[in-house]
């Protein structure tokens, strides 16, 4: 069988996927998204396989390229639908709640004034997040009115119109760790605890967070599968917190999941599971 991996920067994960597919005797072609052009009429002469793993590091590049590839009747993992939801924190929160997946209480405002008013009404601390973005970038704990006003000023100065839409989330009281579960289709392949690096409150591995194996309980499995289904399924990194008051809550789902941290402590071959799922899902 053949599989195409589309990338715009080869990370550890893309190399692992390439190696895993080769080991499983599949033919793999790696295509740089930056070299691709698409036409709506006849004239596309790509040599892609029917199953494509979309692994772009740039959310928008990956998202819109996926739209084009689906137009060409390719089976893309993850789908445009899933990528659109997971790449946007607001959409993710809406889909999670709509599908009864436990998730932190989240508030939205569509102007600086409304955001300011909303924050003082809810009370502090809060977490302010950008709608788009990853690795914990611009995710800020807001501890008082002064910080809120400062962040609003920063956001209003920014040229990106999405930064004028405000996403505020309750500050979840949790241990200094969160959980990253790798979901492939309807299976939780592995789960890890991510501990924040010293002097950092965010637990992202990209920010120096440390990984430790997390036991996959029935509750964790059920929530992760439900969360994955809510956003359309595929290959996903489901992030959860252990809310001291409310138990497990899903706060984010990653569409182009990085699993170097998880692979360093897990005894599961994550890359092989992803390839196996991709190949099987094409045959359906």
């Amino acid at each position: 069988m053949g599989i195409t991996i589309i990338y715009d920067r080869v990370r550890w994960e893309e190399k692992a996927l390439f190696d895993a597919a080769n080991k499983m005797s599949h033919t793999v072609n790696m295509i740089d998204a930056k070299d691709i052009t698409i036409v709506t009429h006849n004239g596309n002469s790509h040599n892609y396989f029917d199953t494509i793993l979309q692994r772009c590091i740039s959310h928008y590049r990956g998202l819109y390229l996926t739209a084009c590839l689906e137009f060409l009747n390719k089976h893309v993992i993850n789908s445009y639908h899933t990528s659109e939801i997971c790449g946007n924190k607001m959409l993710t929160s809406l889909y999670l709640k709509k599908n009864n997946v436990p998730t932190p209480k989240t508030y939205f405002a569509f102007s600086a004034e409304a955001a300011n008013e909303l924050a003082s009404k809810i009370g502090y601390p809060l977490v302010l997040k950008p709608l788009i973005g990853s690795w914990g970038r611009m995710v800020v704990p807001i501890r008082d009115q002064e910080s809120m006003e400062f962040m609003i000023e920063v956001r209003e100065e920014d040229q990106n119109p999405l930064n004028r839409i405000y996403y505020l989330q309750e500050f979840v009281n949790r241990p200094p760790r969160d959980i990253r579960a790798i979901v492939v289709g309807e299976q939780v392949i592995t789960a890890i605890y991510r501990y924040a690096a010293s002097g950092e409150w965010r637990t992202n591995i990209a920010r120096g967070g440390k990984a430790e194996v997390c036991n996959i309980t029935n509750e964790l499995e059920d929530i992760c599968i439900k969360a994955a289904k809510a956003v359309g399924g595929g290959v996903l990194g489901v992030d959860l917190m252990e809310d001291i008051k409310n138990g497990l809550v899903v706060h984010e789902i990653n569409n182009t999941v990085e699993f170097k941290g998880a692979a360093s402590v897990s005894n599961k071959d994550i890359a092989a599971s992803i390839i196996e799922y991709a190949i099987k899902s094409e045959r359906r």
Binding site: H59, Y60, R61, G133, W135, E258
Partner: peptide, 11 residues
């Protein structure tokens, strides 16, 4: 030259 990190980069 590598592309510089974009606002939409990540996982």
């Amino acid at each position: 030259p590598a592309e510089s990190v974009g606002e939409d980069w990540g996982e």
